[in-house]
Design a protein around this nucleic acid. Sequence first.
DNA 1: AACGAATAATTGACACTTGAAGTAACTCGC
DNA 2: GCGAGTTACTTCAAGTGTCAATTATTCGTT
Lengths: 170, 170
Amino acid sequence: MPKDKTTLKLVEPHVDAETRIHDDHHLSVRLWLRMLACTNRIESFVRQRLQANFATTLPRFDLMAQLERAAHGLKMSELSQRMMVTGGNVTGITDGLEKEGLVVREIDPADRRVFRVRLTAEGQRQFRRMAAEHEQWVIGLFEGMSLKQKNQLVELLGELKRHISRETAE
Amino acid sequence: MPKDKTTLKLVEPHVDAETRIHDDHHLSVRLWLRMLACTNRIESFVRQRLQANFATTLPRFDLMAQLERAAHGLKMSELSQRMMVTGGNVTGITDGLEKEGLVVREIDPADRRVFRVRLTAEGQRQFRRMAAEHEQWVIGLFEGMSLKQKNQLVELLGELKRHISRETAE
DNA sequence: AACGAATAATTGACACTTGAAGTAACTCGC
DNA sequence: GCGAGTTACTTCAAGTGTCAATTATTCGTT
């Protein structure tokens, strides 16, 4: 596990992934890099807060978030799908959380290949504390946007997501 | 380096980071997770294409992209800023690219602490081939969106980026 | 000129991620 | 019931990423 203390210094905001753009680039590329820049900023902010306030990481938080709403736990493969990462990855993250007593692997009597992963009581407790703060961070980051702007963004991104799904489905 | 061949199988599109959302979540959190889902899809698409078509990776591509527009090369620290990653990271990626003869470290006579990193001729050639394709991939992914929608998104994300910069600047 | 502080880059420890290869368990058709 | 193919999970190597500590150099003050 990493350290408890983090400086929270963010990268210089004046120069970033988007700064490279010039007029000769196409709109789509500019859009993509701007989206990437926003996402990276938010993500790195959340990572640093999780590290500083809870000594944990985004993947761990993400895994616990998936489990929190699954009353009967999730299979490793379900976790892998929902987190959009490979199975080998889930194994490692689950190992870590299990070692700290935050989740457990339970054997599925119906199919002995399967593990059902569940939050422990302690895991529940910890996750709820983190989730509450996490929500406040996100709300804070989007605070400058009006309700209308946020709704527009949700709409447009929903549209984008549909198109991308088609494009990347082969 | 990983293998040349990639299956290009993307994660099942039916279940992803956003699927966890329910009505009781706040708009900002929903917005954030939707943005993250879009970005992750695009990023993983681009990664897989870079791997499959050029046997390279996104960080390498990113580093070369920074250098391409810098006639006199960039210092390691400048690369670090523009790529929004730490210095130690840049050292490693540069090592790899240098070993493959795509970039060179040149000593700065004015300040002997500094390396100026430049693309080699071979690096230039390779990058230009990759960049051309990369642009087509991105254009393809955003193809379903109208010009108006794309412009709206660029605008809204620009707004968001400004707000985030303020929030995360401490 | 010499000292201390600041800066540039590297290194090492650790975490996350992927893709490929391996093991165990299940399913289906015969 | 048995063999082939599939599925669930783990393991491994290589790359990416962070932070903290180290080394080398430069700058600013005295």
